[in-house]
Design a protein around this nucleic acid. Structure first.
Length: 591
RNA sequence: CGGGGCGUAGCGCAGCCUGGUAGCGCACCUGCCUUGGGCGCAGGGGGUCGUAGGUUCAAAUCCUAUCGCCCCGACCA
């Protein structure tokens, strides 16, 4: 029997000063976790029990569709070079050396590891499909760990990988995961939604994220109240609101205007008496690429034009640039390309690349919202001057057009035109059709029916174990603490003897706890010699969904059952206690 | 990487400006008391003031460096 008096459950009356979000405060206050370093946490008794329950659910559901592996976290450099990610991952990858000086890293995911096994072992279409998964620690050297367990440097992830002979097979593996994930998150008691996600540039054809709304989250979800449209801001699109072009002035050619000291879009628009929608916003970026052999870094300029009132979406830009990362130009680089200080930049007078592959010439990308627009205003590439009457395609030739802007709240839904809303959410799971990226770069091949060598097509699928608990707390808490679904709570029931020095109460509480425990429930007996208030406060804090108060009514053969989420309490006869919980909790005996 | 903030007992904080032998609340230990919402009384233990260097008769306090933690930003266009 679990007796509180003998357990290590270090609850705190006050949260640490550096905890900001609810889940962080309560995980620490409830004695679930303690911080070891930035983004690195120890999981104590209650926390570990909860994680074990979450992992059990994940494992049960994953076992219905796949096979569990245990894989190394310590990987040789060569493995990550075989996919190209040794260099792509940059500082996010934890790297270390062994005693011989060989490079190793701590795995952030296991695509390489899994694909390596597939490459060596899978020979025939007859062995496909395969779904392999694991539930293990991942390591990421996050630039900024934050919000307790929400963004950390070491965390537990369920990740799985599917190998199929063709796209139709991948569809099946993907749908299997989608269903498994729904069962998992349902069983964990989460209120979540599934949204379209950014699938990156690597041939990913479909990708969805499982999100839980919470202000503590780091993702922006764009959704429509009228239809079912929901997408990550990284991916979301909208219809365009109608815009009135300016009338042409003078001889229809670009016309320089003096705009002394007017640098920002707002300033220029106000100064010229026009809407920001008629202004071009010019963004100056660079792509740095390092040559693998000489390890020399070269930079290429990327200039992006969006409508004056629009925001650049960096995920979309990355997609448009085939996954290349950009950084803002430095002041010197700006002067070198535009021959002008920032604030007065524009597309005129520069010879832009005709395609992305066009040597080292600067790339000019235009957001689609500028396509077909006329008589816009941009910087003149000359201090204190802007230019009117600019029409893309006529007055300058862009390298290309792409969807590059971020949707704003209130924009018309791409399906039905209703205003879109934007909410903050935390990502708890992600399913992703990877395609051939790893099969190709790492050389995985199988023979098909015709004896022809083909690449297996892959999917990858992740669930953040800690985020399930974090999201659950974020969505179910009040000023006194939080409550979890019995499926993931460290205990189903806490039995509180209001006065443990009273022999009758003590023995009754012990008897009730023993009865419920033998009926299959996880029971915590609060047998501490504390005042009732202390024990009630702790019980409210630590996330256990039900409490049984063993108090004065024992003389009448009754105890009080309190549901944490609703605060509703109800007197139940001691003899009927097991029966009482049957309606709330899972069957006491396995079926 | 840029900006800001904070490191003093397990947790929350004061003391620092104006240098003079380190304090409060909670927690903890002992005794008494109390027992349906963090009870009361009495006594007690616990801190190299993040670290290193400097200034000074004297440093938690002033100066320098460094480490750690938290927050914001990493898109003035």
């Amino acid at each position: 029997m679990h007796r509180w008096s003998r357990l290590f459950i270090p609850t705190l009356r006050e949260a640490p000063a550096d905890a900001e979000v609810a889940s962080h405060k309560f995980l620490v206050r409830a004695g679930y976790i303690r911080q070891l370093s930035a983004g690195i946490y120890s999981y104590l008794f209650l926390g570990q029990r909860s994680f074990n329950k979450i992992i059990s659910i994940v494992r049960e559901e994953m076992d219905r569709i796949g096979q569990e592996f245990y894989l190394p976290a310590l990987h040789p450099r060569e493995l990550w070079e075989s996919s190209g990610r040794w260099s792509v991952m940059g500082d996010n990858l934890f790297r270390l050396k062994d005693r011989k000086g060989a490079d190793l890293c701590l795995a952030m995911t296991h695509e390489e590891n899994m694909t390596e096994i597939a490459r060596k072992e899978l020979r025939s279409y007859k062995q496909l499909p395969q779904i392999w998964y694991q539930i293990q620690s991942k390591f990421r050297d996050e630039p900024r760990p934050k919000a307790g367990l929400l963004r950390v440097r070491q965390f537990i992830m369920k990740d799985s990988y599917s190998f199929d002979i063709d796209a139709a097979g991948l569809d099946v593996s993907y749908q299997k995961h989608r269903e498994a994930y729904r069962r998992i998150f349902d069983r964990c008691g989460l209120n979540y939604l599934i949204i379209d996600a950014h699938s990156g540039a690597m041939g990913g054809s479909q990708s969805e994220e499982f999100m839980v709304y919470t202000p503590a989250g780091e993702d922006q979800v764009v959704s429509c109240a009228s239809c079912k449209y929901a997408a990550n801001l990284e991916k979301a699109t909208s219809k365009l609101d109608p815009v009135q072009d300016l009338a042409s002035e003078g001889d229809d050619k670009p016309l320089e205007v003096h705009t002394p000291g007017q640098k920002t879009i707002e300033e220029v628009a106000r100064y010229l008496g026009v809407s920001p929608k008629n202004k071009i916003k010019t963004l100056e970026l660079m792509i740095d690429s390092t040559d693998a052999k000489s390890s020399k870094t070269t930079s290429r300029a990327v200039v992006v034009l969006v409508r004056g009132d629009h925001q650049l979406n960096e995920s979309k830009l990355s997609t448009a640039l085939a996954g290349k990362e950009t950084r803002p130009m430095q002041e010197e680089e700006i002067r070198q390309l535009f021959l002008s200080p920032a604030g007065f930049l524009g597309p005129l007078g520069i010879s832009w690349a005709t395609s992305v592959n066009d040597g080292d010439n600067p790339i000019l990308l235009l957001d689609k919202a500028l396509e077909g627009r006329n008589n816009l205003i941009a910087g003149a590439n000359k201090e204190d001057y802007h230019v009117k009457n600019i029409t893309p395609g006529k007055d300058f030739q862009p390298t290309g057009y792409a969807d590059l802007r971020s949707v704003s709240s209130g924009d018309p839904c791409p399906n039905c035109g209703s205003p879109l809303r934007m909410d903050t959410a935390v990502e708890i799971g992600h399913i992703f059709k990877l395609g051939y990226k790893y099969s190709e770069t790492m050389g995985a091949r199988v023979l098909d029916k015709n004896g022809k060598e083909v690449m297996p097509i892959m999917g990858s699928y992740g669930i953040g174990i800690e985020r399930i608990l974090t999201a659950a707390i974020e969505q179910s808490n009040d000023e006194n603490g939080f409550w979890l679904s019995p499926s993931i709570a460290p205990f189903d029931i806490v039995v509180t003897a209001t006065n443990i020095t009273d022999a009758t109460l003590k023995s009754t509480a012990e008897q009730i706890a023993a009865t419920l425990e033998s009926a299959g429930y996880d029971v915590l007996l609060d047998d501490r010699d504390e005042r009732p208030g202390v024990k009630f406060k702790d019980a409210d804090l630590v996330g256990i969904p039900f409490r049984i108060n063993v108090g004065k009514k024992v003389t009448e053969g009754m105890v009080e059952v309190v549901q944490r989420s609703t605060r509703q309490s109800q007197d139940v006869s001691i003899g009927g206690i097991t029966e009482h919980f049957r309606q709330f909790l899972r069957p006491a005996q396995p079926e």
